[in-house]
Design a protein around this nucleic acid. Structure first.
Ligand SMILES: [Mn+2]
Ligand SMILES: [Mn+2]
Ligand SMILES: [Mn+2]
Ligand SMILES: [Mn+2]
Lengths: 215, 215
DNA sequence: TAATATTATTAGCCGTGGCTAAACTTTATA
DNA sequence: TATAAAGTTTAGCCACGGCTAATAATATTA
């Protein structure tokens, strides 16, 4: 019934948002052809995990959403576990969790959660869904949405692209770090921020991947 | 090229011994039909991992053996890791490792090995093959082969059957435990052994699953 | 040694999850 | 608004790893 491929599709759909997910969009995310994606969407649709309006888009049903969140929970618990025990770098966690997430039994998931004291954030600051899909209510907002002249604290960094993660780390953008937003360049929406008395420029794309809270 | 199924076949063949492995034997071990097994043997044979004489049996090639040992290494490292970190019971380790073993990258394998200080035994006492398949030279012998009136120390217990493991634990047969072999019943080769001043009977089958050293 | 039982292989089927190429919708553009 | 472009689906192929049923080889035993 469930399989690695299906779990990856459900998780990808969850990441891409709640409704009208395009076939191409999903296909690109999973590095698979649109034809394969349509086929899988139909399969998941038959199984009640996905709603599909031909040529219009797809979205997760309640059941599908729950399964997706279960995969996300396993992924983020694993990242947290590997980080804590082995001290793996933030950049290498994601790729490992991406495979292990499909091999975790409910029992082992529970053991790990208990061992970690039921964490609500993973090493990238991402919320870890609870055993029934509950996500704690965080107030994090996108860095790109912050007003100029605000002092902010970094809360979430992306986990998928290790190059981005390395760049962020190298420039002092890590969880808990305070920053001051100096200005925004209107031509490309890039930000100039001050970290530890040094100025760095954060591109618009980058600022849409980082979540913060305003101090 | 590699896959979960293939890794499980190679590992099973390694477990079943070095030569002339029967199709039925392998099929039973993997809970699969003989027809499926023949098919896979042919596939692995084409790929140079297995030698096959039709109707006579199969065995691992050098390359196949190396890959099998790599799976065994991952399996046993995982058992050790989960035991150490999460404190999982010896009975529950195997089934978890059975799935996770296929999702472990070389990097993660190395990290875990380092974290554990390159252990040479897993929680069941089984030798952990090195990164190139080397198995340390242990002197463990089967309990069933021990002479009467010898004092022995338990070195390895089986990992696949949690019921057996629970029985052994319940009767005080655990790693490092000293026992004295009192007698052997000739009619069924069962042993009577003394552990901590109490006598227990160990069946012939059971005594072929436990490795010991003579003190 | 001939019949029988056991073991192994082959043939052919199925579901899964990829792919390409072609057809079809929808959206954008001239 | 007709045409082109972009996005989506369908059709049909493939490898994988299961399965059953039929056949073939080997081992046992009468
Ligand atoms: Mn995955
Ligand atoms: Mn993460
Ligand atoms: Mn396995
Ligand atoms: Mn073991």
């Amino acid at each position: 019934m469930t399989s690695i491929a299906r779990e990856d599709y459900l998780k990808a759909m969850w990441k891409l948002g709640s409704s009208n997910i395009g076939t191409l969009e999903l296909a690109n995310h999973l590095k698979v052809t649109p034809a394969s994606t349509t086929k899988m969407i139909l399969k998941l649709s038959e199984n009640g995990l996905v709603r599909h309006k031909p040529y219009k888009g797809a979205s997760l049903t309640e059941i599908g959403l729950k399964q997706a969140l279960s995969v996300v929970r396993r992924h983020r618990l694993l990242e947290t576990f590997l980080s804590k025990t082995l001290g793996l770098s933030n950049e290498s966690l994601h790729v490992e969790a991406e495979r292990l997430e499909h091999a975790l039994s409910k029992d082992l998931e529970n053991s790990i959660a208990k061992y970690l004291n039921n964490p609500v954030r993973d090493p990238h600051g991402h919320p870890i869904p609870g055993p029934n899909g509950e996500i704690f209510n965080n107030e994090d907002i996108l860095l790109s949405e912050c007003p100029i002249s605000s002092t902010i604290i970094i809360r979430q960094v992306p986990d998928e692209d290790s190059e981005i993660l390395i760049w962020l780390k190298h420039n002092g953008v890590s969880l808990g770090q305070k920053m001051y937003i100096k200005s925004k360049n209107n031509f490309d929406d890039s930000l100039v921020v001050e970290i530890n008395n040094s100025l760095i420029e954060i591109s618009s794309n980058m600022s849409k991947l980082v979540y913060v809270t305003i101090e």
